[in-house]
């Protein structure tokens, strides 16, 4: 791919993101005329603006953590939702609220990151460590380990929520993946996401070396274990921060990297740059659709994402399984 076409795709994607953001500002659960919205007597525009910023950050973070996880495991199905990393973060955040009085943004962020880290570590032990190429790369182990971790964490989280009416009121919305409209504790996670999205770009080169194989990476002077640690940290903190803001969103990290890698034609750094605006646009759009289709109520972005995510998983499977064609049973 030439430099010019890379730049033009990137510009186009950024324009799409701007369009989505504009739609998200304009339309919401409450039908308001353009004039009333601009006069902004209700503070509606401000809350929509905050919500859009959140969606952009979370969408980009999910896309990037999916992209890095997929490259690391060599498995195109690895996304923070399917692998249970998001669920681990959600469980930790809910356990924090249930057992301790801490509720600052930083505390939630830390707890969620630790939870994501534990889930990621378990996953790595159950399903990682052998990024085999070809048919092995789409092996069953990873999605299954993810399914186990995810259902276990979500069941525990639900048990904690169900046990307490106050918890129910506060977290039932959050656990189905809703983008917040009022700033409470989101500033710290937002800041962390922005920093990590920039920092993550510089791990791309190491990660690309690792995907050639651990020995290859070692012989080229990059310690593979350090790369794994670096990338897993990045992924877990990104997931932790996103979950702290918007709850455990599923499937966004599956489809977006798939599209981005298709556009980037082999370069991880380009895929990274593409994934940022695509992920952001996708979540902003999902959130806007969720606000519009069920007026005056709302369908949470997480549910819209999951609704699109199931077919997305099937689509990705059809693409990656087709060439493998195992011996017919």
């Amino acid at each position: 791919m030439s430099r010019a076409s890379f730049a033009s795709i990137l510009v186009l994607l950024c324009l799409v993101l701007c369009l989505c953001a504009a739609l998200s500002l304009r339309f919401g659960a409450a039908p308001v005329t353009l004039g009333a919205l601009l006069n902004d007597t209700l503070g509606l525009l401000e809350s929509r603006m905050f919500r859009t910023v959140c969606a952009i950050c979370v969408g980009a973070a999910m896309a990037i953590s999916g992209l890095m996880l997929q490259t690391l495991t060599g498995n195109p199905l690895a996304d923070p939702g399917i692998t249970g990393i998001n669920a681990g973060a959600a469980l930790a955040a809910i356990a924090l609220a249930y057992f301790t009085p801490f509720n600052s943004g930083m505390a939630i962020l830390l707890a969620a990151s630790v939870g994501a880290g534990l889930a990621g570590y378990t996953l790595w032990h159950l399903a990682g460590a052998d990024p085999v190429s070809g048919a092995g790369g789409i092996a069953l182990r990873l999605p299954l380990a993810g399914l186990a971790i995810e259902t276990l964490c979500l069941a525990l989280a639900t048990a904690l929520i169900l046990a307490d009416a106050e918890m129910q009121a506060r977290y039932l919305r959050w656990i189905s993946g809703a983008i917040p409209a009022v700033a409470r504790t989101e500033t710290a996670p937002l800041g962390v996401i922005s920093v990590l999205l920039v920092a993550g770009y510089f791990t791309c080169e190491r990660l690309e070396l690792l995907s050639l194989g651990a020995d290859q990476s070692d012989s080229l002077g990059r310690n593979p274990n350090r790369t794994v640690a670096l990338v897993l940290t990045c992924v877990t903190v990104l997931s932790g921060a996103s979950v702290a803001i918007a709850g455990p969103l599923a499937f966004l990290g599956l489809l977006v990297p798939f599209v981005a890698r298709g556009l980037a034609a082999g370069s991880l750094r380009r895929a990274y740059l593409f994934a940022l605006p695509i992920g952001a646009s996708a979540l902003v759009l999902a959130d806007t659709i969720g606000r519009v289709i069920a007026r005056p109520g709302e369908v949470h972005a997480g549910i819209i994402a999951a609704l699109l995510g199931g077919p997305a998983l099937i689509m990705v499977l059809r693409r990656v399984l087709r060439p493998a064609r195992w011996h017919a049973e």
Partner: peptide
């Protein structure tokens, strides 16, 4: 099994 997980998630 993989497709099953996808179908289940969709449903």
């Amino acid at each position: 099994v993989l497709y099953g997980i996808g179908v289940g998630a969709t449903a």
